[in-house]
Simulated scan of single mutants.
Amino acid sequence: MVLMDERREQILEDALKKGSVTVHDLANKYSVTYETIRKDLAQLEKQGLLIKSHGGAVLKQKTVENPFNVRQEKNIDLKQEIAEKATKLIPEGASVIIATGSTVLELAKLLILRNDLKIFTDSIPAATYLLSSENEVYLFGGKIRPKSSSVYGGWTNDLIRSVNVDLCFVGSDGFNGFNGPTSPSYSDASIDSTIFEQSRKQYILADTSKFTTTSIYQLAPWNKLTGLVTNNSIDAEMKHSLENRIEII
């Protein structure tokens, strides 16, 4: 049976492809009751993603999520600069969660040079790079999500809740107009929120382009996070817009 979070993400993906969805078709597709689908649509409407209509819903906001390998090459120099800064935030002997994301992956590559850390990750590319590391590395289990090259689901959340770490590093698809970092994926946002809960310090890694872009699921409000690691070239106006809400590094 498809989990609730996964079903809602797939319903949104259906709406992105078709422009609208019907309660009848969705109930048949997921083998659930009409009332269950209506609750799903009500929640997606509450998040500002769909508009409920008679017998279904129509798309309110169209967001296209690029595959991980496409995002990985974008602004690579800026991402590497951020990763260098982030390594300086990790004390000797720390326990760390490395989340999914192309900027966070650049950090994982640098951590190969360390040998004193206990590292947990839901990112398959990060785990692959860290295979050659002398750190103690753990890959959370779960269902594989190809678009973000990560794992997700109830099993993943349970595993994350079984650990408490010193700090975590999470990426973002942007935050313009939001009171916190965002993700295009309902399931990725759920995993990242759990990662925040299990970390004593929480850092967002985001290059300067993320100040003018945004996605649809907010991960957490700024005042619940420790810091935002970004580039030296950050515009003064952009910096001012956030510096009273979160430490900018």
Rank of each mutant, 00 (worst) to 15 (best):
E243F: 03
K210F: 03
K224S: 13
P221F: 06
S215G: 09
S241K: 08
F211R: 08
F175N: 00
V170C: 01
L219T: 14
G180P: 02
V165F: 09
P221N: 13
S199C: 05
N244E: 09
A236W: 13
Q218W: 12
S187G: 04
T208V: 13
V165I: 03
T214I: 06
L205G: 03
D166I: 06
P221I: 03
Q202A: 14
D192L: 13
I195K: 07
H240F: 12
Y217E: 01
G180E: 04
N244Y: 04
N179T: 06
N164P: 00
F175D: 02
D207T: 03
S187I: 15
R200C: 07
R245I: 02
G180T: 00
L219Y: 08
L167C: 01
A236Q: 15
D188E: 15
S187Y: 04
T214L: 04
D173S: 15
I204H: 02
A189H: 00
V170Q: 04
N176S: 12
F169G: 08
V163L: 03
G171Q: 10
T226V: 08
L205W: 01
T214C: 05
R200M: 06
K201V: 02
H240K: 15
F178I: 10
F169W: 08
D235Y: 01
T226C: 11
V163F: 07
R200G: 11
L228I: 10
A220V: 07
T214G: 00
V229Q: 10
K224E: 11
S183H: 06
K239F: 07
G180H: 05
F175T: 05
H240C: 09
F196S: 12
M238Y: 12
G177S: 06
Y186N: 14
S183M: 05
T230R: 06
K210V: 08
T213L: 12
I246V: 10
V163Y: 04
T194Y: 04
S199Y: 02
F211H: 10
P184C: 03
S172G: 00
H240R: 14
C168M: 01
